[in-house]
Amino acid sequence: MNEITLTAEELVVEPRGLDKLWSFTRELRIPLTHVRGATADPGVVDEPRGIRAPGLAVPGKYAGTFHRGGEATFWNVSDPRDNLVVELRDEKYVRLVLTVADPTGEERRINAAAQGAN
């Protein structure tokens, strides 16, 4: 699970509990001007992830950096349904794939914040 905080200038993603260990990530700070948009996507867990480095990949739990097609994506997913995809530009990651408590609500919040920043 992930905690998402929005400030006037940043999107902050904090993996919770052991997810910090498994994903090798304490938090991600992304300028809102680098957020292209967010989408609630329960089917994202069925997509190919690519090569894991570093992180964890076991059935039902994907955490860390995954490389596919020359692009890096950050995954911290532990639920087959409650997932959010955040598209980025000019960042280390092209996407963040996250399990959150309210994907639709977070989608609206992030998109509104990103639209206001751009």
Rank of each mutant, 00 (worst) to 15 (best):
Q115T: 09
L18E: 10
G105C: 10
G116K: 02
R109M: 07
P54Y: 13
A53T: 12
R108P: 02
L96W: 07
P59Q: 08
Y93M: 02
A38W: 07
Q115E: 14
P54N: 12
E27T: 05
L11S: 04
R108D: 10
D82T: 07
G60D: 09
D90K: 15
A117Q: 02
G105R: 10
A117H: 01
L56D: 08
V13R: 00
D41R: 06
R89G: 05
N2I: 00
G43Y: 13
R81S: 12
E9T: 10
V13W: 01
A38S: 08
L6S: 12
G64C: 06
E106M: 03
E27D: 05
R29D: 06
T104G: 09
T5N: 06
G105Y: 09
R29H: 12
R108H: 11
G69R: 11
L28G: 11
G37W: 03
E87Q: 14
D79K: 00
P31F: 03
T33N: 00
Q115A: 15
P42V: 11
L11D: 06
E3C: 06
D90M: 11
T99V: 12
R108C: 00
G50R: 12
D46R: 15
P103V: 02
V45F: 02
A112M: 02
I4W: 00
V58I: 15
S78V: 05
P31I: 03
G70E: 13
T104F: 10
G43P: 05
L11N: 06
L32W: 04
A8S: 13
A72C: 11
W75P: 01
R49E: 04
N118I: 06
G43V: 11
V77C: 04
G17D: 02
A112G: 01
V58N: 04
T73R: 15
T99S: 14
T73V: 13
V58R: 08
R36T: 11
D46A: 15
D82G: 09
D82F: 05
V58M: 10
V77H: 01
L98Y: 04
V13P: 00
S23T: 09
Y93W: 14
V45C: 01
P59T: 04
L28M: 14
N118D: 06
G50E: 09
E9H: 08
Y62P: 02
P42S: 11
V85T: 07
G70D: 11
N111R: 12
R26P: 03
V35P: 04
D90I: 13
E87N: 08
P42Q: 10
R49M: 08
K61R: 13
V97Y: 03
L21Y: 09
E10S: 07
R81I: 15
R26D: 13
E91Y: 15
W75N: 00
P48A: 13
V77I: 14
R108K: 15
E47V: 09
G64P: 06
E14R: 15
D41G: 02
R68K: 14
R89K: 14
P80W: 05
V12G: 08
F66V: 07
V44E: 05
G69N: 13
L84M: 10
I4K: 01
P31R: 03
G69Q: 07
V77D: 04
